[in-house]
């Protein structure tokens, strides 16, 4: 979650799209000269490779990914049904088929959805607060040495504390169980957002700032038109990571939940020795976390459309 690893995360995504670029690269290679006639090059809209090529490249890669998961499920099934026990013990682990059957039961009931809804609500509230606070503090720290010197010690000190460790304090400090859980989730999401925002803001390109100043931009205008857009790729990476961390902090927070929440569901299944339900809970958290992270990335795409080669507004 430190800024370096985020940069790496950010670079993983465009790889998928990179193959669709040759036409664009060619368009860009065409040279300038005096007055290129209008419409001479409009290659970028038709630059998608034909379906066959898509399947060979992107399609194959997704197929491999799915197969990788299927292999794991098959191995798990075999291990469970045969009672694999060699240091790792599968004796008490329900097989995927058993978990699947239990999942079908859960999906037909109402209770399971209530758990999910409660968790979604908590994550949504905590996440929105974390994004607002994180971006504001991050920009302040990135822009002002004072702000950074004041806030950074807190972050360095508090960031390594795992979400579970906050539970006692959260209960003592906050009025309701709900607010305690939201607080813990909020903390989880906050740090990646702050650190990535700081990182992005500190990377501001000084040539662009000078360009903006020579065009008459005020400090506020520079913040809005140069600093924030420039930091956006890093901020979006932070938002995505923050969403992931929010989900696993939520699980910790919901230990103290009295009734609902997917984390509560998982812990409660453990105390009730309902093994298939534990696995359902775990996978649900994983799935929801992935889904929400994906939504954040997709939702932020319009902010980064300028990065896609050949993008048109």
């Amino acid at each position: 979650m430190d800024s370096k690893s985020n940069v790496a995360m950010r670079t993983t995504e465009p790889l998928v799209e990179a193959e669709t670029d040759p036409a664009m690269a060619q368009a860009a290679r065409e040279e300038t000269g005096a007055g290129v006639p209008a419409g001479e090059k409009k290659a970028d809209n038709d630059s998608r490779p034909p379906a066959g090529v898509w399947f060979k490249t992107t399609g194959t890669r997704y197929l491999v990914r799915i197969m990788a998961l299927v292999v794991a499920v098959v191995l798990w099934e075999l291990a469970s049904t045969n009672g694999f026990h060699f240091y790792i013990n599968f004796d008490n682990i329900p097989a995927p088929s058993v978990v699947g059957a239990a999942l079908v039961t859960e999906l037909t009931g109402k209770e399971f959805y209530l758990h999910i809804l409660h968790s979604l609500e908590r994550v949504a509230i905590a996440y929105v607060i974390a994004v607002v606070v994180g971006v504001v503090l991050g920009v302040a720290m990135g822009r002002s040495r004072w702000a950074e010197d004041i806030i950074l010690p807190y972050i360095e000190l508090l960031r390594p504390i795992p979400a579970v460790a906050w539970i006692p304090l959260a209960i003592l400090m906050l009025p309701t169980e709900q607010s305690s859980i939201i607080f813990i989730t909020f903390l989880g999401a906050l740090f990646p957002v702050i650190l990535n925002t700081v990182h992005g803001v500190e990377q501001t390109n000084s040539v662009l700032v000078r360009a903006a100043r020579s065009l008459g931009a005020s400090r506020t205008a520079i913040l809005w038109h140069v600093v924030l857009p420039g930091a956006m790729p890093s901020i979006v990476a932070g938002l995505a990571i923050g969403m992931g961390v929010a989900w696993f902090s939520l699980l910790a927070g919901e230990i103290i939940s009295g009734q609902y929440g997917i984390g509560y569901y998982t812990w409660n299944s453990y105390t009730l020795i309902q093994y298939p339900q534990i696995i359902i809970g775990m996978l649900t958290i994983g799935g929801l976390g992935t889904l929400c992270t994906l939504l954040v990335r997709k939702g932020c795409n319009p902010l980064l459309k300028w990065q896609a080669k050949g993008g048109r507004s």
Binding site: R210, A211, L215
Partner: peptide, 21 residues
Amino acid sequence: TEPAPDRGMVFQQHSLFPWKT
């Protein structure tokens, strides 16, 4: 004393705002 739009500036390269059309 400070930059002003009355003195336009063209830089060596990469000075356009990449997020603006």
